[in-house]
Design a protein around this nucleic acid. Structure first.
Lengths: 164, 164
DNA sequence: GTCCAATACTTTGACATCCTACTAAATTCG
DNA sequence: CGAATTTAGTAGGATGTCAAAGTATTGGAC
């Protein structure tokens, strides 16, 4: 038996993090990252057939939600909570794929406005269908638990939930 | 007024995701990613003074938890839930920093064992102090909510919680 | 009106992560 | 026993992310 066990902590229903100890915050933090990685993989796989990643899908979706059909990159970064560099990167690729148009804001020439192309709108639609069709890892939770988790995570984002 | 509002949805206590609609799974998924990003930044910042990232910190910590003081890369990847290439990458850097030793397993020459150097152990200790000292975003939740969230996330990872 | 600080974006560089493909070693099986 | 399969790691390429530094534009101070 060549395959000796290295620390047999993988008993049924156990996770390595359970061993971290009483530091609940730390356990939660690492668990958060594992789950994110899991979900992220699933979502990336779902939109890959359309030649995009989930990061870029989010940009397309955000643009489609916009009233005037275009948004400055700074706002995109703010909403998606990513670094300005990441937005530039994503828009660069989307423009190269002809899914997004990039124009300078005439009212403030520092700003760059991004807007969906017709093709971008089409891809967004089909990608959205694909994404809603897959069965998230998130589906392992009951709808009530999903809502509960969402609310808990909201608090983590520093959003003051207006006490009802 | 040059700074026109772009879709004034940022009212107090509102998040863009709240608009996504009834697709709770999707909302939860994106929120998960935002929170992960937030926490990840905090943790990276906490260990940066020691010349490492949180990903590498996790490797050090995992090695310190090991009984025999060394682990094959495959096990590291399994525990941390990352791709084998990510482990190789992390170990490469840790070895270059002289925080980890890399040896071939004499029992199975396919395997590469990683173990902490004395310096690696020192860095781990100090980084751990720094990390436990900071106030996570996670701290926004009460200990009970932290535990609750952890359990909910556990379910998402496909770990069957043995019903007590 | 001019100078300076703030704002918006880009550029460059460092990481971490994944995927596909490849090499080496061990295990299985005919 | 030897070939095919499986397992462990590594190499190369693409993405996404952040940080620091740089450029351009705007708006306010004087």
């Amino acid at each position: 038996m060549a395959g000796l066990d290295f620390d047999p902590i993988e008993r049924a229903g156990e996770l390595w993090e359970d061993r971290i100890g009483p530091a609940d915050a730390m356990r939660l933090a690492t668990s958060l990252m594992r789950v994110q990685q899991l979900v992220s993989s699933e979502l990336d796989a779902a939109v890959r057939p359309f030649g995009i990643t989930f990061a870029r899908y989010e940009v397309l979706r955000l643009l489609s939600f916009s009233q005037r059909g275009s948004l400055p990159l700074s706002i995109i970064g703010e909403r998606l909570m990513v670094h300005p560099t990441s937005v530039t990167n994503a828009i660069d690729r989307l423009v190269a794929q002809d899914l997004v148009d990039r124009t300078t804001d005439p009212n403030d020439r520092r700003r760059v406005l991004a807007s969906l192309t017709p093709e971008g709108r089409r891809v967004l639609e089909r990608a959205t269908e694909a994404i809603t069709a897959i069965d998230f890892a998130v589906g392992a939770l009951s709808p009530e638990d999903q809502r509960a988790t969402y609310q808990l995570l909201r608090a983590l984002r520093g959003v003051d939930v207006p006490t009802p």
